[in-house]
């Protein structure tokens, strides 16, 4: 599903240029749940940004579902993200002015799904994440865990092939974190979506099929795990 070949990325910091990704090679199979771990500054968030096309690579090939992201322009990338990728952020990134169901509807709007159909899909997805009673609540009326559930529903609603999650439990307490990870794993299993999760949390290790450790811009360790 995902193939990364010799990915390089550097940033100018002050007068110097610092290479954050120094030649990453990674293959992720369809339906796999991969956790990327590493210390702060190891380059894992940068890698996730490059992986999603949010940030262009300096060098290397980035192939997702047979599409070369490094060859796409901004608009093509936007279209690609709309059709193939779902995002889950640490700080949920919900639009505060929209209700839970409207937040979930957003990606479908951009995809041009008719109103009635998208409302139905959003409802289904919110029910799947356990928020059937909270359709019309604003984000400010929801707890942190509930907000992350809305964000998950939004990431999944257009049925993407790959879900990219950046510290999805970073803002949650341990009980809620486990609930969210249970949910992600269940969706991974039921929907067959590919998950790439960047995290600090040790709890995530237990849910991942494969653990990849990053250090100084390189993938240094890989561990295949059994299913939880």
């Amino acid at each position: 599903m995902i193939q990364c070949r010799d990915i390089h990325k550097a940033f100018p910091i002050g007068k110097e240029t610092v290479e954050i990704l120094r030649g990453i090679n990674l293959d992720v199979a369809k339906g796999e749940f991969v956790a990327i771990v590493g210390e702060s500054g190891s380059g894992k968030s940068t890698f996730l940004n490059v992986l999603s096309g949010i940030m262009p690579t300096d060098q290397g090939e980035m192939i997702i579902a047979d599409a070369h992201l490094e060859q796409m322009n901004e608009n093509e990338l936007a279209l690609f993200r709309r059709g193939h990728l779902g995002f889950i952020f640490q700080s949920y990134n919900l639009l505060p002015q929209l209700s839970a169901i409207e937040n979930v509807e957003m990606p479908l709007i951009f995809a041009g799904v008719p109103k009635a159909e998208r409302r139905q899909q959003a409802k289904t997805m919110l029910s799947k994440v356990g928020l059937s009673e909270r359709f019309d609540h604003l984000p400010s009326e929801l707890s942190g865990g509930q907000q992350q559930r809305v964000a998950i529903a939004r990431a999944l609603v257009n049925n993407p092939q790959v879900i990219l999650a950046d510290e999805p439990t970073g803002n949650l307490d341990s009980k809620t974190s486990i609930e969210i990870l249970d949910l992600l794993k269940q969706l991974n299993r039921d929907e067959g979506m590919t998950f790439v999760v960047v995290t600090h949390s040790h709890v995530v290790y237990e849910y991942a099929d494969r653990l990849i450790e990053m250090k100084d811009g390189l993938l240094v360790k890989e561990e295949q795990k059994g299913e939880k």
């Binding site: 999603s52 901004e74 608009n75 936007a78 709309r82 995002f87 957003m106 990606p107 951009f110």
Partner: peptide, 8 residues
Amino acid sequence: YLTLGMGQ
């Protein structure tokens, strides 16, 4: 917006 697939 852009991340969710909205065009510029």
